[in-house]
Amino acid sequence: MLKRIHHVAIICSDYPRSKHFYTEILGLQVIAEHYRQARQSYKLDLALTDGSQIELFSFPNAPARPSYPEAQGLRHLAFEVEDIAQVKARLEQQGIHVEPIRIDPYTQRYFTFFSDPDGLPLELYQTD
């Protein structure tokens, strides 16, 4: 039986830039970082406060995402936040473009989108 999402894996184009984004801007905690010589690839394990993780990979010559945002496959990654306006403001202070906050017509919850350094769509979702 499935219990919860353990991790999401992301392949980035510029490892130092993405590492900075996910650790310094989004504030995720580093669990482990490894350089895998045989693959010429970094693997960075990052923790969210609920125990879920993001695995950040670098691979030489990885193909770009086909289109944004409606390509088949994973559409976006959503992060739950307590105060969406506060998180939006903090991201914008660091030069991150964040879309206007909207209300989901079905759940009546606040949400907005922004992108990681490779254009991966990320969502902020306020549950309370």
Rank of each mutant, 00 (worst) to 15 (best):
M1A: 13
M1G: 14
M1I: 08
M1N: 11
L2R: 12
L2W: 08
K3A: 10
I5P: 10
I5Q: 15
V8H: 07
I10R: 07
Y15V: 09
Y15T: 10
P16N: 08
R17H: 11
R17E: 13
R17N: 13
R17K: 15
R17V: 13
K19W: 05
H20L: 04
F21Q: 03
Y22W: 04
Y22N: 00
E24K: 13
L26V: 03
L26P: 02
G27T: 07
L28Q: 04
A32I: 00
A32V: 04
E33Y: 01
E33P: 01
E33F: 00
H34M: 11
H34S: 12
Y35Q: 05
Y35S: 05
Q37N: 10
Q37W: 06
Q37C: 05
Q37I: 09
A38N: 10
S41N: 02
S41D: 01
K43C: 15
L44T: 09
D45Y: 09
L46W: 03
A47W: 06
T49R: 15
T49H: 12
T49M: 10
D50F: 12
D50N: 15
G51A: 06
Q53L: 15
Q53W: 08
I54G: 01
L56M: 06
F57G: 01
S58D: 07
F59W: 14
P60F: 06
A64F: 04
Y68A: 13
P69K: 03
E70N: 13
E70W: 05
Q72L: 15
G73T: 05
H76D: 14
H76M: 06
F79W: 09
F79P: 06
V81H: 00
E82G: 15
E82S: 14
I84A: 01
A85K: 14
Q86I: 13
K88R: 14
A89S: 13
R90L: 10
L91K: 05
L91G: 02
Q93D: 13
Q94V: 10
Q94H: 13
G95A: 06
I96P: 07
H97G: 02
H97I: 14
H97A: 14
V98W: 05
E99S: 08
P100T: 08
P100E: 06
P100V: 07
I101G: 00
I101R: 00
D104F: 06
D104K: 08
Y106A: 11
Q108D: 12
R109Q: 14
F111W: 12
T112E: 00
T112I: 05
F113N: 02
F114K: 02
S115R: 12
S115P: 00
P117V: 02
D118L: 03
D118H: 00
D118N: 01
G119A: 09
L120W: 07
L120M: 15
P121N: 09
L122N: 02
L122P: 00
L122V: 04
E123N: 09
E123W: 07
L124F: 06
L124W: 03
Q126G: 07
T127H: 10
T127D: 06
D128K: 09
